[in-house]
Simulated scan of single mutants.
Amino acid sequence: MSTVVPLATPRWRGPDLKELVAKVAFGDQDAFARLYDAVAGPVFGLVRRVLRDPAQSEEVTQEVMLELWRTAARYRPDRGEVLPWVLTMAHRRAVDRVRSAQAAADRDQRAAAQAHAPVFDETAELAEGRLEREQVRRCLKTLTELQRESVTLAYYRGYSYPEVAEMLGTPLGTVKTRMRDGLIRLRDCLGVGA
């Protein structure tokens, strides 16, 4: 004797989601609690796969459930099942969160880059500095030996006038006069104050 095995075993299908959404559309809180229990798990799972962050996933899941409460009247049974409709809302909300976070990170990165960006063109500054140094060297060559030595020791090596006079073995008054004359010639050569 052969036994007949049914091809598909009947399974418990849970609450009728279409019926629950219809009741939620009229403000039925008990229906919403049952709908919440039926779809919150799949919604959280989908959102978690998109966001990866558990705390943000919980937050977005709550937003989706609130949106479901507010928009239940928009559900159209002839356009599809409830769960795919809810999961579409969840996916959109999760993607929006990712895009929002990325946009915020991009804004922060641009702001940080602008805050650290030099207010001058570094290459131009270097080139200008090099040209100025060359011009100063050229102008220093127009000075007498005593003027050049006095200016170099005082302004490039940081010695005081008395120290320069001592190092050069020259009276202090002579060093001061030579430096004054040398600085005037440098000013004229460099075109400063002209």
Rank of each mutant, 00 (worst) to 15 (best):
residue 138 R to L: 03
residue 162 P to F: 05
residue 55 A to F: 05
residue 93 R to L: 06
residue 113 A to G: 10
residue 128 E to D: 12
residue 27 G to N: 09
residue 145 E to V: 12
residue 88 T to K: 11
residue 22 A to G: 10
residue 186 L to E: 09
residue 159 Y to M: 15
residue 9 T to E: 15
residue 3 T to Q: 06
residue 109 Q to F: 14
residue 180 R to V: 02
residue 1 M to Y: 06
residue 48 R to P: 11
residue 37 D to G: 07
residue 38 A to D: 05
residue 177 T to E: 10
residue 19 E to G: 11
residue 84 P to S: 06
residue 187 R to E: 04
residue 189 C to G: 08
residue 82 V to A: 04
residue 37 D to S: 04
residue 54 P to N: 08
residue 102 Q to E: 15
residue 51 L to Y: 01
residue 101 A to F: 07
residue 9 T to M: 13
residue 126 L to S: 06
residue 183 L to Y: 00
residue 35 L to C: 08
residue 162 P to I: 13
residue 4 V to S: 14
residue 51 L to A: 08
residue 27 G to P: 05
residue 47 V to K: 07
residue 69 W to V: 09
residue 137 R to T: 03
residue 166 E to A: 12
residue 151 V to P: 07
residue 42 P to I: 04
residue 96 D to T: 01
residue 160 S to N: 13
residue 43 V to R: 00
residue 4 V to L: 13
residue 75 Y to E: 12
residue 95 V to D: 03
residue 77 P to E: 03
residue 180 R to Y: 11
residue 164 V to C: 11
residue 34 R to W: 08
residue 119 V to F: 01
residue 140 L to M: 15
residue 86 V to K: 02
residue 93 R to N: 11
residue 129 G to E: 00
residue 1 M to V: 06
residue 115 A to N: 08
residue 154 A to S: 14
residue 142 T to Q: 11
residue 98 V to Q: 08
residue 136 V to Q: 01
residue 56 Q to R: 15
residue 106 D to F: 07
residue 74 R to S: 15
residue 95 V to C: 02
residue 32 F to D: 02
residue 100 S to F: 13
residue 48 R to S: 12
residue 180 R to E: 05
residue 177 T to I: 10
residue 161 Y to C: 04
residue 157 R to M: 15
residue 71 T to E: 14
residue 188 D to R: 05
residue 136 V to F: 02
residue 143 L to T: 01
residue 102 Q to F: 01
residue 17 L to W: 05
residue 85 W to M: 09
residue 133 R to K: 02
residue 126 L to D: 12
residue 59 E to N: 05
residue 45 G to W: 08
residue 168 L to E: 07
residue 161 Y to S: 01
residue 55 A to S: 03
residue 160 S to D: 00
residue 29 Q to N: 13
residue 51 L to M: 13
residue 158 G to T: 00
